[in-house]
Amino acid sequence: MVASVAQVEFIESSQMHTSNYLRSSKAVGVLWGVFTFCFAIIDVVVFIQPQWIGDTVESKGTGYFGLWKHCSLVKSAVGQEIICKGQLEDFNTILNPAFRAATVFVGLSVVIIVLCLCAMLFFFFFSPSTVFHICGWLQFFSGAFLIVGVLAFPGGWSDPSVQEVCGPSARHFYPGQCGLRWAYILAMIGVADVLVLAALAFTLAVRHVKLLSLQPYPIIYKGEMNQGYVNDGQRS
């Protein structure tokens, strides 16, 4: 009888631990989903915005450059105004191969993170561990492509159009008289963000597997344990 009471207390303690473990995992999972959505917004913004590098007070000209769009100050009939050029539909309008490569890789990063958001719907149909593994790999590849885009972009800073704004000293991986703008910095932050999210997704997937391993015990209803389990335990 003493052994049975101890066994019941052990099972109740294990189930309480499992329940707390599950609640904490769900809370972390919700935060992971929210921050994944935030990263998707960041990824889209840095892809669209042309504020990757731009003029400073020391610059030769006035303008700024993004992945596929570049803007500069030109004279017009009404005076001077900022005119933006470059179309995503026509890669020939993108200034140089480095900018085109960066556009492709960051674009792939955007597509993959959108697929990750869509994959979250699988939580309604598959086990959380499987979905976290899928999303973790998607986030990893999204981050990898974003890293390539961030590293490829400075390879186009020697372009004549860039030098018109940033001065003749602008060259590969050196912006000359220009400076980094907020979109480029945001892209770097996004790289760190998505890689942390990918690591967290894999961690949550493993935790859910461990959670299943913690549930071999019978469920206690209203303080009463399955009698057959008690009898088996006593016989053992």
Score class of each variant (00 low, 15 high):
Ser4Arg: 03
Ala205Trp: 00
Lys75Met: 13
Cys71Arg: 10
His208Arg: 04
Thr56Phe: 02
Gln139Asp: 01
Lys210Leu: 14
Pro168Leu: 09
Ser14Trp: 10
Pro50Leu: 03
Gln49Pro: 03
Ala187Val: 08
Phe91Ala: 14
Tyr221Met: 05
Ser161Asn: 07
Leu117Lys: 07
Ser236Met: 11
Gln163Leu: 05
Ser161Phe: 03
Ile112Leu: 15
Ile53Phe: 13
Val148Glu: 06
Met188Gln: 07
Ser129Gly: 03
Val162Asn: 02
Arg100Gly: 02
Asp43Ala: 15
Ile134Met: 07
Gly79Pro: 04
Phe153Thr: 01
Ser59Cys: 01
Val30Asn: 08
Thr93Glu: 08
Ile147Gln: 11
Ala201His: 05
Ala101Pro: 01
Asp193Phe: 15
Val5Met: 05
Gly176Tyr: 02
Ala170Ser: 12
Met120Glu: 09
Ser14Tyr: 08
Gln51Ser: 11
Trp137Ser: 12
Gln215Lys: 01
Asp90Lys: 10
Gly167Gln: 07
Leu138Glu: 12
Leu108Arg: 07
Leu121Ala: 10
Tyr229Ser: 09
Ser14Ile: 12
Tyr229Ala: 14
Val148Ala: 10
Arg181Ser: 08
Gln7Lys: 12
Leu214Arg: 10
Ala119Gln: 03
Lys26Leu: 15
Ser109Ile: 06
Gly179Asp: 13
Gly179Leu: 13
Arg171Cys: 05
Leu197Phe: 04
Thr56Lys: 04
Thr62Trp: 09
Ala192Pro: 00
Leu95Gln: 02
His17Glu: 14
Asp55Ile: 01
Cys166Met: 08
Ile113His: 06
Gln80Gly: 02
Ala192Leu: 08
Leu195Gly: 07
Leu212Asp: 15
Glu224Gly: 06
Cys166Pro: 04
Phe37Ser: 01
Leu95Trp: 01
Val45Gln: 09
Gln163Glu: 10
Ser127Trp: 05
Val110Phe: 15
Ser109Met: 04
Ile189Arg: 08
Ser161Val: 07
Val165Pro: 05
Ser158Thr: 06
Leu31Glu: 11
Ser59Phe: 09
Leu151Cys: 11
Asp232Phe: 14
Asn226Ser: 05
Phe123Gln: 09
Met225Ser: 05
Cys178Tyr: 02
Tyr221Ala: 09
Met120Trp: 14
Ala77His: 07
Lys210Thr: 12
Ile41Thr: 04
Ala102Thr: 05
Cys135Arg: 06
Ser14Gln: 11
Ile94Thr: 03
Leu31Gln: 11
Leu204Tyr: 09
Asn96Trp: 01
Val106Ile: 14
Val230Leu: 13
Asn226Leu: 03
Phe145Pro: 00
Val30Asp: 06
Phe10Cys: 08
Val230Trp: 01
Leu88Phe: 04
Cys178Thr: 02
Ile82Arg: 05
Val165Asp: 05
Cys71Ser: 06
Trp68Arg: 00
Thr36Ala: 13
Phe39Glu: 05
Pro160Gln: 02
His17Leu: 14
Ala6Phe: 00
Pro175Asp: 01
Phe105Arg: 00
Leu204Cys: 14
Arg23Pro: 09
Leu180Tyr: 12
Gly190Ser: 00
Thr103Pro: 00
Phe126Arg: 12
Tyr21Thr: 09
Val106Asn: 12
Lys222Tyr: 15
His133Thr: 15
Gln49Phe: 14
Gly233Ala: 01
Asn231Trp: 07
Leu204His: 13
Ile82Thr: 12
Arg207Gly: 13
Glu81Val: 01
Leu67Ala: 02
Tyr217His: 13
Arg100Ser: 10
Leu214Lys: 11
Trp32Cys: 02
Gln163Asp: 02
Ala3Gln: 08
Ala102Phe: 03
